[in-house]
Nucleic acid binder design. Structure first.
Lengths: 251, 251
DNA sequence: CGGGTGGTTGAATGAAATCAACTATGGTGG
DNA sequence: CCACCATAGTTGATTTCATTCAACCACCCG
């Protein structure tokens, strides 16, 4: 992993490379051209909007370090977090053709974000088929995550819902080479979690209390630690099929 | 509209053409090659699965007549409808590269469905850029719909949630040239609606009763009629921006 | 030291599920 | 043709779950 970072000269894009490699076989050329695009990166504080609903789409964001989320605000000020973005995640490739964003994107933690101009990405897609296939894959996974979220919100109890979300984040982190074998740390507050699962902060707190009593979680200030992923997965009834890690076959 | 159906020889693809034309300027050649692909269509009864979660992805489905939905089943048998598909809608272009479907698709009414082999669609995308742009657009709209659903499920009251869904379907139907000016008919039962909004059928019934009392809806057997869309939109706090009908500009 | 944010707990209120009964309808088979 | 059944819709009573309101703690940071 270390040697890779030296090899490609841009240590911070490791997560992205790691992720795309899971989806399609990438040549050195593919990776080099990808790294070339990530040169323009900035460090941003937590709770910083990258783009807001109603704005014209900007460059493509790639999360290199830290966490971000997609969210919407309702007229009464309530927030619904739609999806979490962790290192290696990026926003839609084709939103550039739309007039307006239909949601906002913000950092959740201090984060390092790359900004890639749309034309450059489009040139990349056109010129490198295996990269473009890897990109499709990530978009399909993002769609699967949205669908799974809808199922959770509609038909799971609050305990299952919280457990399911944390399971998902756990597996996504692992797929990116982040976190330990049996545990990992989610760097966000219970308020953020509440906005993601559609509950109030106080009820989210009570749900977490129950998961902690079941020895599935541990808590730190501003973070949640998964202590026992198999227990959590059992509570959630978690099936990771929608993350599409089992590949059909490279081709 | 009638002359068009004669012109292209395949009256049933009108909805699809109408929809894609809203997204990008299509030449006669574009439309002709699209129609050529829709020759293989079948009439199916209501509640018929087109494909099930866990199956290998099959051909691309295009709804020509009737309604369908994407859904997932939970271990306890509960169903969550994830998205509605009306004439002109079709499933993801690229799911072919995945090993398994992460959700099922079924008809809700008797329906006419076209089955397009994946290779043919891919050839079409590669050969006709403006069609491929129109396809992107539809995928982005589908994504926006999923995100709006998550917001509804998480942060809207049950009355707002039902009203919001019906508003969305109303505007989508209108965009496809279906339905009247101020009203339109949703051909599904309250049970289906309940599975879409994540409530029980009895509570869905009570919600509908309230919307009917507010003179926003009328009821028929196995169908719901929108009587007053502006009243419904006011109740829902509906903003159609996520359907992306305002185009950036053809290019 | 003071103030803000995040976390925690209790008590009261409100929303939705559950359980149960009953109606209306359409289709089937005798 | 009618008796029967299955399904969809409706309503009421009760229980469960989540929100609201309120108070308080712990901590970090200026």
């Amino acid at each position: 992993m270390r040697d890779e970072s030296l090899r490609w000269g841009v240590s911070l894009t490791n997560a992205l490379i790691e992720k795309l490699r899971g989806y399609a076989p990438l040549s050195d050329m593919d990776i080099q051209s990808l790294c070339d695009l990530c040169h323009n990166a900035r460090n941003l504080p937590a709770a910083h909007d990258l783009i807001r609903e109603g704005d014209a789409p900007g460059p493509l964001f790639v999360v290199l370090e830290g966490w971000a989320c997609r969210y919407k605000l309702l007229p009464d000020g309530a927030r619904q977090i739609i999806a979490f973005m962790m290192p290696g995640d990026f926003c839609d490739l084709h939103v550039g053709i739309l007039a307006e964003m239909d949601h906002s994107i913000a950092t959740l933690t201090p984060a390092r974000i790359a900004f890639i101009p749309r034309p450059e990405i489009e040139r990349l897609i056109d010129s490198r088929p295996s990269l473009s296939k890897a990109f499709w894959w990530t978009q399909l996974v993002d769609g699967g995550v949205l669908r799974a979220t809808i199922v959770s919100m509609g038909r799971r109890t609050s305990v299952e819902r919280v457990a399911h979300l944390l399971c998902e984040l756990y597996f996504r982190m692992h797929h990116m080479g982040l976190g330990d074998e049996h545990s990992c740390i989610m760097p966000f507050s219970q308020i953020v979690l509440a906005d993601a699962v559609g509950l109030t902060p106080v009820h989210t707190n009570r749900v977490i209390k129950r998961l902690r009593a079941a020895k599935a979680l541990e808590l730190g200030p501003g973070m949640i630690t998964i202590a026992n992923i198999s227990k959590l997965a059992a509570i959630a009834g978690f099936d990771d099929n929608y993350l599409h890690y089992r590949l059909k076959k490279y081709a």
